[in-house]
């Protein structure tokens, strides 16, 4: 099976299962017809801010 053969490759590329499945999901979404396609894509907006802390201080806000 193709997916089984691909498994180790995405893991080797430093992806987690979540990233991998998100890419797959996005591919599927892109296969939709209009107007469902733009609707589905507009629903999936990603926005948040992360700041990493070490020893009680924020490293750099991103």
């Amino acid at each position: 099976m193709a997916s089984n053969a691909a498994m180790p490759f995405w893991r080797a590329a430093g992806m987690t299962y979540i990233t991998y499945s998100n890419i797959c999901a996005n591919l599927v979404r892109n296969c939709l017809k209009e107007p469902h396609k733009s609707e589905a894509l507009s629903r999936e907006k990603v926005h948040f801010s992360v700041s990493k802390w070490t020893d009680g201080k924020p490293e750099k806000p991103s």
């Binding site: 998100n22 999901a25 999936e44 907006k45 948040f48 801010s49 992360v50 700041s51 802390w53």
Partner: peptide
């Protein structure tokens, strides 16, 4: 780790 501004857009699974 501190994560903020999660709810600027409606929550969705991708996010």
């Amino acid at each position: 780790l501190i994560i903020t501004e999660l709810q600027k857009n409606p929550l969705n699974y991708t996010q």
